[in-house]
Design a protein around this nucleic acid. Sequence first.
DNA 1: GATACGTGGAA
DNA 2: TTTCCAAGTAT
Length: 288
Amino acid sequence: MSASLREPILDWYAEHNRDLPWRRPDATPWGILVSEIMLQQTPVARVLPIWTEWMERWPTPEALAKESPGEAVRHWGRLGYPRRALNLHACARAITADHAGRVPSTYDELRALPGIGDYTAAAVASFAYGGSHAVLDTNVRRVLARAVRGEEYPPKAPTAAERRLAESLVPPVGAPRWAVAVMELGALVCTARAPRCERCPVTAQCAWRLAGRPAHDGPARQGQTYAGTDRQCRGRLLAVLREAHGPVPKDALDAVWADHVQRERALDGLLDDGLAEVLPDGTYQLPS
DNA sequence: GATACGTGGAA
DNA sequence: TTTCCAAGTAT
């Protein structure tokens, strides 16, 4: 029954997919891996320019592996979650050292790389190498929650039931295309805020629409404020290091955040995370 | 399982 | 202006 979702969604994708550079036939496994890490919790529109710059600068894992981790963080710019830049750099070094410079092709090998979890391992194995995996990202989870479970939103964290459902839908042939098609539907039509059900290829069989699009009942998800948080403080401090050409004196960091206690805590966090380092003379810089 | 982790665009 | 949230992962 839910297998009847496949054809309409695949047909819809054939006509409406976006032309993204990491989806083109000439995209390399490395380019696909870089895109997947950059896309974690980050919109396509913001990834596009950074991905393009990265691929020109570091077209292979070896090229990035030769750089310092700090250069990866610097060119990450304001994409957010800068530990991902560190992860990508560590991936490049691991791929160079342990995989002869080739991005590994199996789920398990990919999963063992830093910053690559269940979603990213499945996505890279699927999109770069044609593997058959259930690719369960937030878009897919939302589409299945609505179309099959009849609920507006999926649970907060992926459940075993969701995995079973996603796995049951993986077609025997063309798993990667199916995965990208459902993701695209979630990204363009079955969106979180204002779904475009009138443009949806499976609107006639969508359990949520058939139930009258009932609103999510459970507790509203906690929207975390950003202003004044440690996160924002870390962002400010790292921005100073990123934009500086060399080591910066402590004064330069002190200048961007008033609360001394919070500022010291955030700076310690950056040092602990390897996003910054302190030199013997007490100045700070991105990791060398 | 809950929490920490950035950023900026859209509603 | 405030809130939501975008191809998650690690602890």
